Amino acid sequence: MEILLAKSAGFCFGVKRATQMAFDASDNFKSLQSLGPLIHSPQMVKKLEDRGIRVCQRVEDADGEAIVVRSHGVTAGEFVELQGSGKTIIDATCPFVTKAQKYAAELSRDGYLLVIVGEAHHPEVQGIVSYASGEVAVIASAEEAGELPKSRKIGVIAQTTQSFENFRAIVGVCLDKSRQLKIHNTICDATSVRQEEAVSIAGQVDLMLVVGGYNSANTTRLANLCRDKGTATYHVETAGEIDRRWFEGVSRVGLTAGASTPQFLIDEIMEILRTF
């Protein structure tokens, strides 16, 4: 069976940076915590815990010397709490997320109805929303955008892992809803590359495997894009979830992984696929 492995599979720049910052900090502090899971990979979070980096959900529960801000960022209020806690802050927020937070504050301050293309429940989006001081709408689809009220000024940004096609479709709807439209494309370049490569591979294979946390928005989106291509697609977190029966009659399989998926998980799955 031939295996096509995506070159872009695995850690993106922001996740690689955040994990390296956390591991480096673990050498310098006896007690270290992250505010929320550092990245959306339960397996990597476990490795971080093995290095003494514990997860806490609220600033008030943090009892370590230092605290790491996760790659998705935190709310503006939480950051203020951290600054007043007296603890050392290791800010591992992805620079692309920081840029989205900055644009949210600017657009809101300048009187725009802020439209964030993304998933309202996602921690990155919740953090971005918190930097706005005016009206905010989190929109997941062009259909939802159609329900927006007409507004003189609309500013549009995106969750960093959104698909460009969805972003463009929503921007198109907002153009009809406003007299003045300001757009900041805050989608991470690596996200676009990863999605384009996944779709390309899906068009060449009988089956796609997408590896990553079930709580990872970008991994879920990769799997959905591959399914939209009409290719049989399975989203798995670990090698142990793979079922040999999926590969009956399969001569070519594609493999990609989300931005929070560590290399050791990709390697484990490659080893299993080579035995089929």
Score class of each variant (00 low, 15 high):
S41T: 03
V173Q: 13
T93M: 08
R227N: 12
K177W: 07
A137T: 02
K30R: 15
H184I: 06
V15P: 01
V117Q: 12
G203T: 02
C174Y: 10
L148K: 11
A145V: 11
V199L: 13
D91F: 02
A232D: 14
N28I: 04
V117R: 13
A62N: 03
T275V: 05
C226I: 05
I3Y: 01
L5R: 06
L209G: 03
I183N: 03
V15F: 07
E65P: 00
Q126H: 00
F264P: 00
A9C: 14
L181T: 03
E124R: 14
V115C: 03
F23T: 12
E2F: 12
E165N: 11
A25T: 06
I201P: 15
G258R: 09
R252G: 01
E237F: 01
E65T: 10
R109D: 14
S31W: 00
I116T: 05
T186Q: 09
V236A: 09
S163K: 09
R227T: 05
S141N: 12
L175T: 10
G155T: 02
S133L: 12
Q57V: 03
I39A: 14
V211I: 15
S85H: 06
V205E: 09
R152V: 00
M21L: 15
V55K: 06
T275E: 13
L48D: 12
T256S: 13
I157C: 02
S200H: 08
V97K: 03
I53G: 00
G203Q: 13
A158E: 01
G84V: 13
T233A: 12
M44F: 05
E106H: 04
D228S: 06
G134Q: 07
L82G: 05
Y131H: 13
G86E: 13
N218K: 05
K47N: 13
K87T: 04
V125H: 04
A140D: 09
T238K: 11
N166M: 09
F247C: 06
A76Y: 08
L38S: 10
V136P: 00
A259Q: 11
I116H: 06
P149G: 11
D24I: 06
S8T: 15
N218L: 03
Q57C: 00
V15Y: 06
W246R: 03
Q263P: 00
V15N: 11
Q33I: 04
A132P: 00
V68K: 05
D110F: 02
F247H: 03
S71E: 10
T186D: 09
G127H: 04
F167D: 08
S130D: 07
F29C: 04
A190P: 02
C56E: 15
T186R: 09
I39G: 04
V236D: 05
C174A: 13
I39T: 08
L32K: 11
G203M: 08
I89N: 06
S31R: 15
S200A: 14
I128L: 06
C94Y: 01
R51H: 12
F96W: 07
L38N: 09
C188F: 02
R252I: 11
A190N: 07
Y214Q: 13
K47Y: 08
L209V: 04
R274W: 01
